[in-house]
Design a binder for these strands. Structure first.
Lengths: 228, 228
DNA sequence: GCGCAGAAGTAGACATTGTCAACATTGACT
DNA sequence: AGTCAATGTTGACAATGTCTACTTCTGCGC
């Protein structure tokens, strides 16, 4: 059957955009099964290609997972930026970020775990650049909101303020991250109240931070690790 | 070779305590490889036993992983209770708990991820009882410290105070949990400063909580999910 | 137009893994 | 001694990640 299978609907030899298709399939499977333990072959099947085709686009399963994780980061970053776009109040923006972060995790735990669960957290190669970028843009949103006064007073994004801003971000981020994962793991719940919870936790955090921004130790970085 | 292999040093047919041996081997492999993707067969090899022997003690790989996770929880609970044992000041106890929690995670990320990364977070069966118990005893330590005045004022563990106490615990726990995982995933660092960081974050959290304890929404549970 | 290099996809093979079923060995209780 | 259940062993099977060799197409220079 070299060229005449049946009709014109037969799949062409070349897929067109297998890379995207595979990542998409992976996102689907991840959402459905909520497990990182799907097989490359399954994705290939879903994309309607042979079990080895993905290897033309990804070196490893690890590589594929990294791409999926990156896609997840981009999704999250977009969701957060969309949520803050039309909000003026820095406080509102911060709340929106928190909601997006927490709900994003609760709605797709497996993806979230893949993203943050450091499938390749080993320091041998570090996270792929896309992940770092998404994390950076996440951080940038926070910096904006905070410097604009989300903590109750303006905190311009200057060198003199870096430690303070980083301290605030550290508090905020780890608080939301922790809340998300506790919800995801059912150690706090019910997860339907995710946004209520994030709001109330944020509230108390802001009230607290308004009084005392932690002095984080020198040499601490917040966000993707510095180069090197 | 029914009974005379060489000398008396030959391994007896029955291992004696394979269950423990397998879990121990798993903990070892987990610490060494920092990956949850080891094989049952590898554990059997390490224990010097045939590849199927573990199935007499664990139904699945899942089951084995659950046992390992439970062991991790017990380890953590013990570490925390040891750390707080000889401390009078509730503030000190809280700090010790925070340190133990964060450092425990940083020192063995893979185990921590297994424990909290919900290998079996699906609501089909829930976490095994041992895990729930460990989480409970963790929570109990927090309740003690808080009711003893870790937040700057006594907060007796009465029904009237439950919501407030739960709110404080939620803040504390998610904060520490998030900090730990950000450290583990290298989104904050360096991890050598884990205890400094936990101390400074705790400090600001306490200062904040002293002012405002969040009003968590009604119906929210903190800790292992209520029965049902 | 055309032919060719290389990208994209396929087919087959291999070691490893989780798991099942059938069999062997052993200690404990009667 | 004799039986039984617990514990271990061996062998088999399908699925998976990944390697190598082969095929089919696409784009590019001529």
């Amino acid at each position: 059957m070299t060229k005449a299978a049946s009709t014109a609907d037969q799949r062409p030899y070349h897929h067109g955009d297998l890379h995207r298709a595979i990542v998409g399939a992976a996102l689907d499977v991840l959402s459905e099964s909520q497990s990182t333990e799907f097989s490359l072959r399954e994705l290939a099947r879903r994309a309607g290609v042979s079990h080895n085709a993905p290897y033309k686009h990804f070196a490893d399963k690890r590589d594929l997972l990294a791409a999926v994780s990156a896609a997840g980061f981009e999704l999250l970053a977009k969701k957060m930026s969309d949520a803050t776009q039309h909000l003026d109040s820095p406080r509102e923006r911060l709340a929106a970020i928190a909601r997006a972060y927490v709900c994003g995790g609760v709605n797709n735990p497996a993806l979230y775990r893949l993203m943050f669960g450091g499938y390749l957290a080993g320091q041998d190669n570090g996270r792929p650049a896309i992940e770092r970028n998404a994390a950076e843009s996440l951080k940038a949103l926070l910096v904006d909101a905070i410097s604009d006064g989300a903590l109750g007073r303006l905190l311009p994004n200057t060198v003199a303020n870096t430690r303070e801003i980083n301290g605030a971000i550290l508090i905020f981020w780890s608080q939301m991250h922790g809340l998300t994962l506790l919800l995801v793991d059912h150690l706090v719940g019910p997860s339907e109240k995710a946004d209520e919870l994030s709001e109330s936790v944020l509230q108390s955090m802001l009230d607290g931070l308004a009084n005392v921004i932690p002095a984080i130790p020198a040499g601490v970085w917040v966000g993707p690790p510095p180069a090197g």
